[in-house]
Amino acid sequence: MSDQHERRTPVSLTGLREDDPHLQPAARNPRLVERVIALTFLLGLALVVGFGASYWVNATPWILGATLGGGLFFLGVGLVAWGKYLMARGPFVEERHTLASSEADREAFVAAIVERGGGVVKRRKVLGGLLGGGLGAFGIVALFPLLRSLGPLPKGTLFHTDWRAGSYAVDQTGRRIHVTDLAVGSIVTVFPEGTQNTDRGQAVDQTVLIRLSNENFTTQKGRESWGPMGYIAYSKLCTHLGCPVGLYEQQLQLLVCPCHQSMFNVNNGAIPEFGPAPRPLPQLPLYIDAAGYIRSQSDYNQPVGPGFWERS
């Protein structure tokens, strides 16, 4: 079966004759291959023109993509086949030359750097030192824009939210939550009034308000007065990486974070029961005012959201 492919022995380093087997196409039947390639090119050409037309008339995306993609694909296949089957089949060889320079060249180069450069610096130590100092200082000063203008300093911002003593809890539309609003077992995302439409309100102050069936429920020791009439509120920022803890499993009484599946026990101070979150969700102390609206007793007693160096 290998008779067709006569084995090509290496030829000498000088020019090749036109009929050298290395210069012949790899295809056994070049005429046929040529025709197939011509057909592919024709198809490609037609599709590319079709792309132009469909762009002109603003056709749907899939027609645009099919004509463009198909056109380029067929042109490409034809061209690869042309290179592979109809051009000189080779293989050819090229010699490598060592990249390294001669010993003498290298020596001369190093000598120039060390002797000339070293000579200059050694003789003018003070100048060199001053220049180095100046450029070094500039290097440090050049960092100032990065350090001073890119953003404000964090200061205490990460420690506080906008919840204050007496803030009304409102939903995303700004409606104050009345004690009769929530059905038992349901949940709503609330914000301190006035922040519900701000970036910061949404990103930092977001809080889940849950109404439990037990009206005298205490989530943890010391929080006896935090959940009036079964209303309890936790920060909605996952303590892992700050995703909104958006999923409430009512039967299991779990708040679930969809990002990495941390689960927080609503009944027990939102302690993480599963997943990578390291801390409970901070709880917001609530009270119900005389008119029956849900309000906060104070801010959270600790920073909300993911951990960082400065928090204790």
Binding site: G65, G69, L75, G76
Partner: peptide, 22 residues
Amino acid sequence: VFLAKTTGFMLIVTGVTALLGA
């Protein structure tokens, strides 16, 4: 030879990307 093959290949990669996009 290589130029033909590689240019053709570039067209194929672009074509496939366009087909995926479509």
